[in-house]
């Protein structure tokens, strides 16, 4: 069983709180505001009162309670790190404990995610997994831009929609599913087809643009606005068992137009080319979401100025420097 810092704070008098950490760990994240006893041996956790076990990030204690079959015990979600954050800033970030434990993310990175806004253009095969992963990761605000309706042919690859949603607006169906995943996320829905007239205004306050469209003309429009506003675009595109991902237009880095100059918008896919297995947009969309998160958090190893080409048939990748 687990308990969050917020709940523990309200009910702390009902628990014996056992700190299982080393002295070095205790110094890093001291459990201020809690009366604790230190774990000495297995006897100390056999107290009959309900107890909360605390480790540094809430992972060791979760396993320990199961492994040692400790009765009446809770693991503090997010551990001492989450408690310190809650105690200092009255903010319970424990639900993201499994990603804040990553040194590349940490509490600082999680706060950046919570304070960021991402706009997704196109809520189809790519837009669905991108939105799902970003909401689950704790992005603060999402803007969903699409004017399309859910079709029965979407259901094999667009996991935010179900049979009940057929003929409903995609953005509304997506919003209701995403709010279930994280009720605290702010979702703005924009029921329009993205074009040059409305695009700039729509994207003004965005930190990252996700290009999840399905045609070259839209990609070119997004690129123009992204470059003009100096807002990075995480581009994704699919072809049968393959996909491409790149981060475009970061402080003058390559854009879609640099990648594909003088591109004729009348390039058309055949029916065969439009075919896709649902896993491919899930893979490519999740790579887009990963790159968006790295951009927001400030992780330097990313796809800025690079094009990733993924082949799902052979599981080969090429990363090309643009």
């Amino acid at each position: 069983m687990i308990i969050t810092p917020e709940v523990l704070n309200k009910q702390k008098n009902n628990f014996t709180i056992i700190d299982i950490r080393s002295e070095k760990e205790r110094q890093k994240f001291p459990l201020l505001g809690l009366d604790t006893i230190l774990f000495s041996d297995d006897e100390s956790i056999n107290v009959t009162k309900k107890k909360v076990l605390v480790c540094q990030y809430g992972i060791v204690t979760e396993g320990m309670i199961i492994e040692k079959k400790i009765n009446n015990a809770f693991s503090l979600l997010g551990g001492a790190q989450a408690w310190v954050e809650y105690y200092n800033d009255n903010e319970d970030l424990s639900r993201w404990a499994r990603q804040t434990v990553l040194p590349e993310i940490g509490i600082k990175g999680q706060k950046k995610l919570l304070n960021s806004q991402v706009s997704i253009i196109g809520m189809g095969g790519l837009g669905c997994p991108v939105a799902q992963s970003l909401v689950m990761a704790g992005i603060g605000k999402l803007k969903l831009i699409d004017d399309d309706f859910v079709s029965i042919s979407n259901l094999h690859r667009q996991p935010l929609y179900s049979f009940d949603d057929v003929n409903k607006k995609k953005i509304l169906a997506a919003k209701s599913k995403l709010k279930v995943l994280n009720p605290e996320v702010i979702i703005e829905t924009v029921d329009i087809f993205f074009d040059n007239k409305n695009g700039e205004e729509l994207l003004l306050k965005t930190d990252v643009i996700i290009d999840a469209t399905d045609n070259i003309k839209s990609r070119q429009r997004i690129d123009q606005i992204s470059k003009k506003l100096n807002i990075p675009t995480v581009y994704g595109a699919l072809f049968r068992f393959e996909g491409q991902v790149a981060i475009l237009n970061v402080n003058g880095s390559a854009g879609y137009k640099d990648l594909f100059p003088n591109l004729n918008t009348s390039v058309e896919d055949s029916c065969e080319d439009a075919g896709v297995l649902g896993m491919l947009p899930a893979i490519i969309g999740n790579i887009q979401a990963l790159e968006a998160i790295k951009l927001i958090v400030g992780i330097n190893k990313n796809l800025i100025g690079k094009l990733l080409m993924y082949d799902g048939m052979n599981h080969t990748m090429e990363v090309i420097e643009l």
Partner: peptide, 10 residues
């Protein structure tokens, strides 16, 4: 050498 075609599916 890799030839890069534009792909547009989404």
């Amino acid at each position: 050498v890799v030839f890069i075609p534009p792909v547009q599916g989404g």
